[in-house]
Design a protein around this nucleic acid. Sequence first.
DNA 1: ATTATCATGTAAAAGGTTACATGATTTG
DNA 2: CAAATCATGTAACCTTTTACATGATAAT
Lengths: 186, 186
Amino acid sequence: MLKYALLGFLNYRVMTGYEIKAVMDQSISYFWHAELSQIYVTLKRLEKLGLVTSEVEPQESRPDRRVYTITEAGQRDLVTWLAAPLTDLIVKTKHPLLLKLFFARPIGKEALLAQLRVLLQSGQHYVNELHEQARQTVEQAAQEYPHLALDAILWEATRRYGERQTETILQWLEETINAIEIQFPD
Amino acid sequence: MLKYALLGFLNYRVMTGYEIKAVMDQSISYFWHAELSQIYVTLKRLEKLGLVTSEVEPQESRPDRRVYTITEAGQRDLVTWLAAPLTDLIVKTKHPLLLKLFFARPIGKEALLAQLRVLLQSGQHYVNELHEQARQTVEQAAQEYPHLALDAILWEATRRYGERQTETILQWLEETINAIEIQFPD
DNA sequence: ATTATCATGTAAAAGGTTACATGATTTG
DNA sequence: CAAATCATGTAACCTTTTACATGATAAT
């Protein structure tokens, strides 16, 4: 599936693996991420499949860049995937925090509350920064690439998704801390 | 990490792999899932590590059951994990729907809207059933195992988490459909 | 001086899914 | 009569993570 993330970005413009990683982290990190090593391996696979081509740009005093371009076959593959019906609205996510909370009784009320409070605090900081940063990224990308103005509407929709999800979690965490404080005996 | 889900359930009572799968699907499926084959393999690993023991219960007209029991070492391992500080409030989830939406411009307004509307409808049905079922599961489990009354407070908290998250997604999807209808040209 | 950035890659290990095999009993 | 339930397991495959290797330049 990383395949389609790579084709998607290369469909905007030519890029190196390193650049794709940076752009991914600034844009779709709410709902997709990949390690650099995996990106490099997958780009090679896509080249073997004829979905992208690459050219080496020699550089002085830095490693050479390998710049990837999407092929017509790659564009067809991407559009075919985009046009295939979406199936799952809710993804079966693995969430270690929830797993811990579910089984947490043996560690007792105060130990649990201490953990949750730290998490709430760090979460609130993190989220405010994240949201502001993500908003700016979408705005900036839309200004830099005017021919992608329509895409920006969709980027903004996915950004709002991340915002809502994280706000919901923080609210839930506050309520959960309250509920445990009231209901759980010492 | 499946390791701790298995130890967590076996800490309530002895169970077979098959039973754990059933209980998992009815309780923590909002935030954890595993295939039966993986559960069997992992239980064997835990036995090798001395965290659980197993006994075969012969049965007639059905395959023999292999019943697992958590050991003291297993309980220590579980509690150590539970007591270790939680790190990530927000999990880096891979969400194919969002990935598609982000890059979806090439398929055009109507094709995209058609997909999203189908998803909204099926999502609304699915979610109502799911919530009612999950609520009943928690209630029932709490009644059947009175000595786990404290645990039930935590189970309820994780259930509410699932409820909130899915409600948020459905709201967001409605808004997104509206936004695309208004902002996106034909 | 040390850390971050730029830039690409290989290899091993871990984690997880899918497919396959077996087979009686119960429910619709 | 077909499908679901009970019940366990192996093997192949795919995806992903972590560790390692290299090395100059720019910023703190």
